[in-house]
Amino acid sequence: MRVTFLGTSGAVPTTERNPSALFVNRDGDKLLFDCGEGTQRQMMRFGTGFAVDHVFVTHTHGDHVLGIPGLLQTFDFNDREEPLAIHAPAGTRGTIEDLVSVTGDTPSFPVRITQVSAGDTVLDGDGYEVRAIRTQHRCQSVGYAVVEDDRKGRFDREKAEEELGIEPGPKYSKLHRGEPVEHEGRTIQPEAVVGPDRPGRTLVYTGDTRPTDSVVEASEDADLLVHDATFADDWAERARKTAHATGREAAEVAQEAGAKRLALTHISTRYGGNPTPILSDAREAFDGEVFVPDDGRRIDVPFPDE
């Protein structure tokens, strides 16, 4: 699972930070979370490509959706034929439809708009799901969790070969699939050579939100939590009034959830090119790895046991 931060600014872009967008390559499936103005240029600049089949919108404030018309037009110019699904919070279909048709042209490829609510399984992928989670902002909003299925346990080849006398071959595959095999007059059960299931990875992207119990729950043991951290403590009251979070509040969510890594995004222009105050506050409240990504930063999310 590879994550590219395409836009990490708050509502107003800066020369260093674009409005919100996050690109996730999950074993070849390309997922785009939010699509602020200029996202298509960021995709070109940072080499993600345009092979996106699903766009997940957290809410319809302009800094999260104004990139949609341009991206669709680029898809058209590239003679796209594959359908595109845009997922957005319940009650926002009309806004998304307006964005799709704002130029007066109809895309030459199918565009499917789905409205989602907290608790919905938005996408049932191959070996993973994308789930909508409840967030708290000034409008209809959701966050999203990419949750992988458990993986098969480790196969103990040494035990299979040396202790049980099973030569490498089809029997190994059957045992790893959870099927018993017959060997030298006895039945070998899978658990004899296959360890317990291993957890997959979890990535949570909140969009704009106050700290909420629902995000804590969705982020339990998450491998990466990408959380709104618009302000440092010096603007905590502003964060409350505008339904955003501070770096410290995001860190408290991550700490309570037991997340492994925390990325702080949606950085206010008040901090210019120096988000150190936000990061410093967060480090006081979170024991794990915490960082403020620059636009274009690309990270790999390892499996929990790696």
Rank of each mutant, 00 (worst) to 15 (best):
I299V: 15
V12P: 00
D150A: 13
V130T: 04
A192R: 11
I68Q: 03
D34Q: 08
R186M: 14
D295M: 11
G62P: 12
R248H: 02
R177I: 01
V204T: 00
T92V: 11
F303L: 15
D281S: 02
M43Q: 09
T74R: 11
P302A: 10
V130D: 04
D150G: 11
S280H: 06
D149C: 07
D124A: 08
A85F: 03
A132Q: 01
T8F: 04
H87V: 01
K241E: 12
V301F: 10
L203Y: 01
G10T: 08
Q115L: 01
T276R: 15
I278F: 03
V301G: 05
T4F: 07
Y128H: 02
R297A: 14
Q189W: 12
V142Q: 08
F46W: 15
Q136H: 14
A88T: 10
R177M: 14
S108D: 13
D27E: 02
G195M: 03
L6N: 08
R2P: 04
T265C: 13
T242C: 04
V12T: 13
H183S: 08
D305R: 13
R298I: 14
P190I: 04
G62E: 14
R112N: 07
I68D: 00
F75H: 05
G36N: 07
K159A: 13
E191F: 14
H54Y: 05
K174T: 03
V130Q: 05
P277A: 05
A90C: 09
T114Q: 13
